[in-house]
Design a protein around this nucleic acid. Structure first.
Length: 279
DNA sequence: AGTGTATCCTGCAGGC
DNA sequence: TGCCTGCAGGATACAC
């Protein structure tokens, strides 16, 4: 669930208050969210000062002193919360608790435990980060560069958008929303878009991501901001999760299709189906 | 280079 | 009330 806007919301909330603070104690309740033995993780973070909190794709990136980097990928149900004792209540399914010297805690909670906390050296994280595609809201990606990237792939657009090596941060909700807004069918192949269509798709993608950030993300069920609040973007979804409900643009019922083992939501009128190629 | 399938997990909604 | 099935924001590995 946590896609770019949700992770960006969490990072924006943590960035003003967390950097400069030291981790005085680390408790691991669910070792399976770590990629290394719990005692190694505890040794790696205890005593370290958090230098910065940033985002790369769907990852929260915490740069620690001693040039190590703690990367949090929230999976489907992960939450990263700043818990102020006596102010906000703790969540269930706490996996890792990082106590800060002020008495606050940075909690990682995750019902399904698909999320991961990974401790990298700066070099290792640099390598990992370079494997991800460009940031969709970043300056380096212009319409021309986007079109060039699309031209190299025959994958269906929805699959292409979800692949983090093409673009970093797009998930199923915002892929479906952007395609709907751009009037492009999710099964169109990436390379089939002409320059006008690819420009329209990039514009739609950026618009929906920005709007979702403004609304502090989409809470379907589990997502919470770093302060434990729900995101406000759900009422603005035009296609995702709206099977059978009227398309806000043309009124015809939204349709759910499944491919690559995941649902896609679309308007069959606004998003004309590509030729099947079998006839 | 693609796709389909399965896996890691829990919880909730809907049908009966 | 309970049982069952299907479904869920993600990432990855496998066979084909």
């Amino acid at each position: 669930m946590p896609e770019l806007p949700e992770v960006e919301t969490i990072v924006r909330q943590l960035a003003p208050s967390v950097p400069g603070r030291r981790i005085v104690k680390a408790r691991v309740f669910r070792p399976d969210v770590l990629r290394e033995p719990p005692d190694h993780f505890r040794r790696g973070v205890t005593g370290a000062t958090i230098r910065s909190v940033t985002r790369r794709g769907k990852n929260v990136v915490l740069v620690l002193s001693h040039s190590s980097v703690l990367v949090v990928n929230l999976g489907m149900t992960g939450r990263l919360l700043l818990l102020r004792p006596g102010v906000n209540a703790g969540p269930s399914h706490v996996a890792v608790d990082l106590s800060l010297e002020s008495g606050d805690s940075l909690l990682y909670a995750d019902t399904r435990r698909f999320g991961r906390l990974t401790l990298y050296s700066a070099e290792e994280w640099g390598r990992e980060s370079r494997r991800l595609g460009p940031e969709p809201l970043g300056k380096s990606l212009d319409a021309e560069a986007f079109h060039q990237r699309l031209r190299g792939s025959k994958a269906p657009l929805r699959s292409w958008l979800l692949d983090q090596k093409h673009l970093a941060g797009v998930g199923n909700i915002y892929a479906c929303e952007a395609l709907h807004q751009a009037g492009i069918h999710p099964l169109r192949t990436a390379s089939s878009l002409d320059s006008r269509e690819s420009e329209r798709l990039l514009r739609s993608l950026r618009r929906v991501l920005r709007k979702a950030i403004e609304a502090r993300g989409t809470t379907l069920r589990d997502y919470r901001t770093a302060s434990g609040e729900e995101g406000g973007f759900l009422p603005f979804l035009q296609a995702y999760g709206r099977e059978g409900k009227p398309c806000p643009r043309c009124g015809s019922p939204i349709v759910r299709i499944v491919f690559s083992n995941r649902s896609a939501f679309l308007c069959p009128i606004c998003q004309p189906a590509p030729p099947t190629g079998t006839e």
